[in-house]
Design a protein around this nucleic acid. Sequence first.
DNA 1: GTCTATATAGCGATAGAC
DNA 2: GTCTATCGCTATATAGAC
Lengths: 205, 205
Amino acid sequence: MNTVAPVKISFKQQMLQAREDAIIRAVNQLLAEKGFEAMTVDEVAAQVGIAKASLYKHFPSKEDLAAAAMAHLMGQAQAFLDTVPLALSPLDKLRTVVRWTMGLKLGGEMPSLPSQNSTLRATLMGNRAYMDGLVDVSDRLGGWIEAAQAQGAINPRLPAIAVLYTLYARACDPVLEFLKMSELHTDEEIIELVLSTCFDGLNAR
Amino acid sequence: MNTVAPVKISFKQQMLQAREDAIIRAVNQLLAEKGFEAMTVDEVAAQVGIAKASLYKHFPSKEDLAAAAMAHLMGQAQAFLDTVPLALSPLDKLRTVVRWTMGLKLGGEMPSLPSQNSTLRATLMGNRAYMDGLVDVSDRLGGWIEAAQAQGAINPRLPAIAVLYTLYARACDPVLEFLKMSELHTDEEIIELVLSTCFDGLNAR
DNA sequence: GTCTATATAGCGATAGAC
DNA sequence: GTCTATCGCTATATAGAC
């Protein structure tokens, strides 16, 4: 008698999950397009094709919408890290990840949040999925950074945390969009250019 | 008979200028603290100590307030460029300027604007003082960049415009505030750290 | 859970007296 | 030019029917 119920529940949950996935995709795109402050909940609802009040049944606030999008992004990052070839050197692993984040940014799929909004920060830090993902990603990148420094591939005199921040910052680097606006280079050229300035620096070698 | 009038006019203009300077200082600080969207005109008026309606007698919109602050920043930048020792190499001149911008940022004096807001962009581009300052600063930095590349100090294979954007981006680099929040380094150490990653890159040399 | 309709509040901008 | 008071709009969030 309880052989059917799990299926019905699972189906309902699948519908719920699909709806929430659609919401998160819309939020992700709008966050990438206009940023958190300029994104309105009405736009999100319109893009998903549901009423605004329905949105609030899924997520209790605009901040939680953004946090869910960031948690989703962390999940994507974790999945990408799993695909990075083990055979690569730690340095090349890091370069691969940074290439991926810059590709997302140039493709308009990288949500951007203001680092100054305090209520948003509180919601983010209260989101377990996001925080767990962030810690996992940071740990794995941190391991590669330390390995690359031990090999002498990355400057060992730089604090590992500074290297990590520098790599994260490439995901929201305004140089990417400025170069894209100039329309002088393809996305791939822009990525290799910024990757070069990031790892090799501006100075001649 | 016209020996007094100019003085009275000049005095009035001085008062006006002083008032507008106070406004711009307030806008600059609030823009650095909270960004354009989070800054409210009421806060600006309160900080200056005048009524909001009085603000609108000086500047016709919130966007114009921000543009005036950016124009003031460009004036500061031009003044700083004048103080850079001629004896320095082009590379060291650039490093000096970037150090200065990062010091402003860490000191909470670097106004930050969203690069996506279209009406703000329009107001900025319609502000002659800002645009003229930006062009002048960019020209002078561009000259130093090309000289440094000709000397082989800066990688000649990088487009000069990409180098310019990369230097500008240090003024709003989130790595600065993240390192400051970690409270592991002094402002000077942070500046030298980011300066090193910018010019020397992450890779070991 | 989804909808329509509405409450509530904050903000940019203005009216009008002085 | 400065003030007080207010308009008009937009945006987050909610009430209540279905």
